[in-house]
Each structure stands twice: as structure tokens, then as C-alpha cells.
Write a protein that binds this DNA or RNA. Structure first.
Length: 138
RNA sequence: AUUGCAGGCCGCUUUGUCGCCUUUAACCGCAUUUUGGUGCGGUGCGGGAGGAAAGUCCGGACAAUACAGAGCACCGCGCCACCUAACGGGUGGGGUUUCGUUUCGGCGGAGCACAGAGCGUGUCACAGAAAAUUACCGCCUCGCUUCGGUGAGGUAAGGGUGAAAACGUGCGGUAAGAGCGCACGGCGCCGCAUAGUAAUAUGGGGGGCGGAUAAACCUCGCGGAUUGAAAUGCCAUGUACACCUUGCGGAACUUCGGUUCCCGCCUGUUGCUCGCGGGUGCUGCAAGGGGGGUAGGCAGCGCAGAAUCCCGCAGUGAUGCGUGGAUCCAGAUAAAUGACAAAGCCCUUGGGAACAAGGGACAGAAUCCGGCUUACAGGCCUGCAAUUUUU
RNA sequence: UGGUUCAUAGCUCAACGGUGGAGCAACGGGCUGUUAACCCGAAGGCUACAGGUUCGAACCCUGUUGAACCAG
């Protein structure tokens, strides 16, 4: 339940490029994390087997050393690992997989508790957002 | 004991819970099967960042491609000897600059891109007469003179300028002067002797007096093929025989397959010139351009080797040698090595104390080694020097 | 991984090895009933940092720091 497997990590360069381009995906804030997400397109091959693929990013502009960026990414990833099951439970079957980008935007390093709170908030908003997309599609 | 300097070493520890990457193959399940196995998943047993992993400043290993050769260009290095796989690194020695000290002989510390300015060219602001064969004020000789000077010539001692002024001091000498001559001293050049492997040092001889700058061009000596693990090899996947540009001559021999020579074009040889080599010369080939597709896997890749430590031997030392002893399984690929909790350790602040609060340096492997440079809380060890206390 | 370029006033840029300057901005004064424009004036720099070469360094050399870019 708390596992974090390789197929749950976002690796496709095309999808990552789409996430970073303007208007590529829906985005909102769960401070200190900014969330960008979209559904995988139908034509993508091979289609991932997990419900969500996620990547974590920390900008070099705010964190100069590699050690600091590693630390931030590990904190966010750990918070995601501990709470992702809440999101999985709310995604209905038959939906395309969700590509997710968690970008750390605070200027300084924060404690795990603060990051965890932000990620929990983001997961709740995201579940809401996916539900709305469902209504709009139907 | 404290302080300073130099060198070397370490660079948070333990437990629990939840995770990540990986070696191995004991066990389990599924698939496949050439019945040996193989692949995937799970469990188990192990391992999981550094002294700088960093900067990418040098040098190699390794790999691919290339290589008859010559000249010019280009790049790097530069006291001597040694060490090393190699180096722009290291060790030892010499010279030099500077600081301290001195009983003025030296001694000690720190630094040095430390070949050549006696081939040539360039530059040397301002000031100054003049910045490299120069003469403003001076000094001296001769001519003229209205006796104020003025013209021709000699000279570089004195003056002032400057970062730097054409060896320094004294004597002789002279019209005045000048290394013009002599004595002492300085400098670098040529060859000699002694010491040293050598750089170099010391001594005496000859001939001389030359501005600085080569981190200006340059000269001399030595070295340099190019490209770098996204190299490279293999497997899988997949597209486009589309498009554009250029080229498509001549002669001889012939067993009609071709061969040779000249010529043209393209191309390789780090750049250029020569030279040499490869391809091509007809209805589809060649060379180049541009465009499109693939974006997965395996090897390379951590294999015990230029490995590290100890001991012994050789050497002043770097280092080398050894049937000597011991140690050494990180291997990711949108990229693992983590999070939380508790206890301990250390530091700071407050406090009489118990204790409380806050903090734990610099920093993250990506083919691998040897160096250099830079960042770094705190601690340990060794040596030397100084001071204080005790015996 | 390999390579190239750059750093000068608040901003954009100059400056043979010889006193660091221009435009804009900001400041003070003038003009105007007021503002803008215009005119006058003054200020602002350890030339990214640390060494070295040179009589003298923004410039030459070495090292460091930061930034931008290129190739596959």
C-alpha cells in the first residue's frame, strides 16, 4: 500500500515536455507544491499499467546545490508515497492514466510536516479536479 | 598544560517502523520450453556516496577512425637531476627575490612562468634637451662683435626631469672633458682549471661596458594524429528506391571479363602547399546537402588491480622491490542510497546545579584511475618552537 | 561529456598597457499657474574576487566565483 514502484514514475520525455509547456495541463497550488497534471493521450504506447505516473521537480534557480535539490525531491516523494492511496481510491476504473508533476516552489527548504500537509491538500484538489473532468466529458 | 606552525587521520553513532536501488541464487508462484534451463514476480541472505564524489585545470588507461612522406603554420611545455604508466604532478638539489635574526661569516621562514634582450622588429604615457647613438642650461677652443652677445666646432664632468639617463669611486690626463689610461669594485660574454652526474659554485686569463620589456611579436630546445562512454560493438523497432546540387571525357591493349595511361569531379590525410591514397566517369550510379524514422534492450560498466594499509629491505627523499601479512562485492539511467520516532555524542545560549531551548560542517557517484585547485563544523595523533607550573 | 563567450555607475554599453567615459534613470536648481519636455549643475566605480608580470594593469598571465550559449 505504501510502495512506490518504477511503473508509477513518469519517464516519457514527450509527456514531460507537454506538462512543462504553457497550457499543457491543468495546474493549481498546494503550497509549497505546485501541481500540473493531464490524462495520457489514447495514442500513447505502451500505455502505463498504473493509475498515476508522477514526477518530482525542484528548480535549480532556488536550490543551487545538488544536495539541496535531492533533499527536496526526497521529501516530496516520501509525502506522495505515504498518501497516494487516498487518490487511488477516488479514481474510477477505466480512466486513462494521469501524468502528474509535483514542482516544489518554496524558496527555502521546509520540514517534512509542512511538505506533507501541502501534498495532502494537493491530492484532495486533484481528486476533485479529476471528478469534474469526468462530468464535463459525460 | 596552553599557544603557534608543519604533517597525517577521522569526519556523528545505535535501535525500531515504513520505503528505494542492487549482487547472489536457497525457497515459492506464474509463463515458456530444445526438459539442460530461460524470463517475470515474491520471500530470504548480503551490499548501498565522498574526502573532496565538486571545479573539469592537467595526465593516462580504454575505444573508434586514420596514418609513405616533406615544408610552412598551429598548440603546449621551459634551471638541473631523479620519481612515475604519464603529467603543467611529486622529491631532492641549485640560483634568485623578500622578510626576520645575527657574534656580520652566516642561519631560518615565505615566494619565484627560473631558457634567450650580445639576431631582428615593436613599445616605453606625463615630465624631461634626450627614452637609445640624444645635448636645453652649462664647460672649452676658434672666428666675428655695437662688448649685450653671436656663428662654427668639441665635450658629456655638473644641473634639473623621470620608474628608468648610457658602469661606480678615486687618481692621472686634457683646451674642456670622456673607460681615454690606471687602481679597487660591479656586471654579463668567450674559453681554462678545480669541485659536482648536472644546474651551478670558486679561482685565475682574454676581450668588453651592453637601458627595460619575451605573462609584446619573436628565437632556441623538447613534445603533440583526431575524436571522446551520448566513444564503440551487437540485438530489436522503424522509414522514403521521395527531394535538391554536382559529376559522368580521351587514348592504347584485349582472351571482350577488364587492364594501363592522361584528364575531370568528389573525398581522406588536424589547417595550408606539395605529395600520396580511395571513389567515380552514364541511364543509374557516386559524392555532398537537406529531410524523415527509431528514442527500447544488452555489452562497454566495476572483472583483484598502474589498488589500499602494515612489516622488511634499498634510497636523503618522492618512490621501488617482496613466493611476507591483512583488506577490498555502490552501480542508478527523468536517474536508488531516504523519511519518521526514540536514545546517546558534540556545539551554542540561559542556569549554582539538575536541566531547558536551538543546532550538527562542506557537500551527492554516472567508464575507470593518478594528480592539481577550491569548499569544510568539530575532533584525534605526531613533530618542532615559545611560555608557565610541578618533580 | 566536451567546447565557446562574458562579467565596468541603478540599466545599456565605450575606453593603444599611461588621469575610467557616454546615453538613459535617480538627485538639486531654473523655466511653468502645475506637470512633462527643455536648460544648468553636482553625485554615483576597490573595473566580479585573489595573486602575479610591468615603472605603471579594466586591458597581459594564473587561479577562483557567477552567468549565458553551443555540439551530440
Amino acid at each position: 500500500m505504501f510502495q512506490f514502484k518504477p511503473e508509477e514514475r513518469l519517464k516519457s520525455r514527450r509527456i514531460i515536455g507537454a506538462l512543462f509547456s504553457n497550457g499543457g495541463g491543468a495546474s493549481f497550488l498546494g503550497y509549497p507544491v505546485r501541481v500540473v497534471w493531464l490524462f495520457f493521450p489514447d495514442t500513447f504506447f505502451p500505455m502505463p499499467t498504473s493509475k498515476v505516473q508522477v514526477m518530482v521537480s525542484a528548480p535549480k534557480k532556488n536550490f543551487k546545490t545538488a544536495t539541496a535539490r535531492n533533499r527536496i525531491k526526497r521529501l516530496v516523494r516520501e509525502a506522495w508515497r505515504l498518501h497516494k492511496h487516498e487518490l487511488y481510491a477516488q479514481i474510477p476504473e477505466g480512466k486513462p492514466p494521469v501524468a502528474l508533476l509535483l514542482m516544489y516552489i518554496a524558496k527555502e527548504e521546509q520540514t517534512f510536516a509542512e511538505v506533507e500537509a501541502g501534498v495532502i491538500k494537493a491530492i484532495r484538489k486533484l481528486a476533485e479536479g479529476i471528478g469534474k473532468e469526468e462530468e464535463a466529458a459525460s
